[in-house]
Simulated assay, not measured.
Amino acid sequence: MFKQSIPTHSMPVPFDTERAANFKSAEEYAAQIEIRELNDLFVVYERFIGNYVDIEKHWYQFLDKYKAFLNEKTILLERFFNDPAITDMPQCICDICMTVEQDCDLDNVMWIGGGKWIVYQFDGEIKDIFETIQGIFSVWLPGSGYHMSRRYGLNIYRHIDRGSHSVIMDLYIPIS
């Protein structure tokens, strides 16, 4: 709540001391935000603890390891637990996940609860995801009339381009 009460237009990027995250206006974020309901998702997952900068390489390892479970209906997602702007970077937690059939016999499966979410489509370089998420939290959310619920945020990947280190993804922030 404290973070939401302080108007801001930029902030340092914790992963790169040479960069600052410069935010869009609330209206620019609002133009790309939708409110959606998401069903529960059954996933195989691996927990990542560390600097979020390292998630990209862990994703590629995860995809290579579980490629036999990939099909045209697979949803790739991550569930993030920490805000790297306020959490010690080596302590950030994220579950790297992909949907699987409920009869999957792996031990590392779980349900991720659905519900109501604000959704923002991100299309760009992986290094710029932090700036977008922080802008939504710092600029749009405080004046939106919505409040983040006590669930974890999700990033659902629509396209990953390993060569250019870019993605198209939907950023899901749980609301009440």
Score class of each variant (00 low, 15 high):
1 M>Y: 13
2 F>K: 01
4 Q>S: 07
8 T>G: 00
11 M>K: 10
11 M>P: 00
12 P>C: 06
12 P>E: 02
16 D>E: 07
16 D>T: 11
17 T>G: 05
18 E>H: 07
19 R>Q: 03
21 A>P: 00
23 F>V: 05
27 E>M: 02
28 E>I: 11
28 E>K: 13
29 Y>K: 04
30 A>H: 03
32 Q>P: 02
36 R>W: 06
36 R>F: 04
38 L>M: 14
39 N>C: 07
40 D>M: 07
42 F>V: 06
46 E>Y: 04
46 E>V: 01
48 F>T: 07
49 I>V: 15
49 I>P: 02
49 I>E: 13
52 Y>N: 09
54 D>M: 12
54 D>S: 11
55 I>L: 15
55 I>H: 00
59 W>L: 05
60 Y>T: 01
60 Y>V: 08
61 Q>D: 13
61 Q>K: 11
65 K>R: 11
66 Y>A: 02
68 A>W: 00
69 F>E: 08
70 L>Y: 03
70 L>I: 15
71 N>C: 15
73 K>V: 05
74 T>P: 02
75 I>S: 07
75 I>L: 13
76 L>P: 01
77 L>Y: 08
77 L>R: 08
79 R>W: 01
80 F>A: 05
81 F>C: 00
81 F>N: 04
81 F>D: 07
81 F>R: 03
83 D>H: 06
83 D>W: 10
84 P>M: 09
86 I>C: 12
86 I>M: 03
86 I>H: 03
87 T>P: 09
88 D>F: 14
88 D>A: 06
89 M>T: 14
90 P>Q: 08
91 Q>N: 15
93 I>G: 04
94 C>W: 06
95 D>Q: 10
96 I>D: 00
96 I>Q: 00
100 V>M: 01
102 Q>W: 07
102 Q>K: 15
103 D>Y: 03
104 C>W: 05
105 D>M: 14
106 L>D: 08
108 N>W: 07
112 I>G: 08
113 G>W: 06
117 W>I: 05
119 V>P: 05
124 G>A: 10
129 I>A: 12
130 F>C: 08
130 F>T: 08
132 T>Y: 01
133 I>M: 10
135 G>N: 10
137 F>N: 12
140 W>Q: 03
141 L>I: 14
146 Y>M: 10
148 M>T: 10
148 M>A: 09
151 R>D: 15
151 R>T: 06
153 G>K: 06
154 L>Q: 02
158 R>T: 09
160 I>V: 14
164 S>W: 06
167 V>D: 00
170 D>P: 11
170 D>E: 15
170 D>N: 14
172 Y>L: 15
172 Y>N: 06
176 S>N: 11
